[in-house]
């Protein structure tokens, strides 16, 4: 359930109604910043948000995203090492 997609806030369009233009891969749509308007709206320009049914529901945390990817990179490297070891072992067996 609940299709949500990342988009970047590019401009505030209606301060009073907390509306802003968001860009998703070059597609623009006006969204409400109401759920993420904890401070001045202008601070959100440039931020990546998670958009659901026309609302910016969360500001995406770049550090958390990087941490997730970093952990995966470690796993990927470990996997490559494992595969190389397996290949090495197989090569030895084949000899």
């Amino acid at each position: 359930m609940c299709l949500g997609i990342p988009g970047q806030i590019v401009a505030i369009t209606d301060e009073a109604r907390q509306m802003a233009m968001a860009d998703v891969s070059g597609v623009r749509r006006e969204v409400s910043l109401a759920p993420v308007a904890l401070g001045p709206l202008a601070d959100l320009v440039g931020a990546w948000v998670l958009i659901h049914v026309g609302f910016a529901m969360a500001v995406i945390d770049a550090e958390e995203a990087a941490a997730t990817l970093e952990a995966l990179r470690g796993l990927g490297e470990a996997q490559e090492t494992l595969e190389q070891m397996a290949e090495g072992a197989k090569a030895l067996e084949d000899q």
């Binding site: 949500g4 109401a34 759920p35 993420v36 308007a37 998670l50 969360a58 945390d61 941490a67 997730t68």
Partner: peptide, 11 residues
């Protein structure tokens, strides 16, 4: 965690 805060969205 990049999208989900522990306590959700207060607004």
């Amino acid at each position: 965690a990049r999208v989900v805060p522990e306590h959700g969205n207060p607004i």
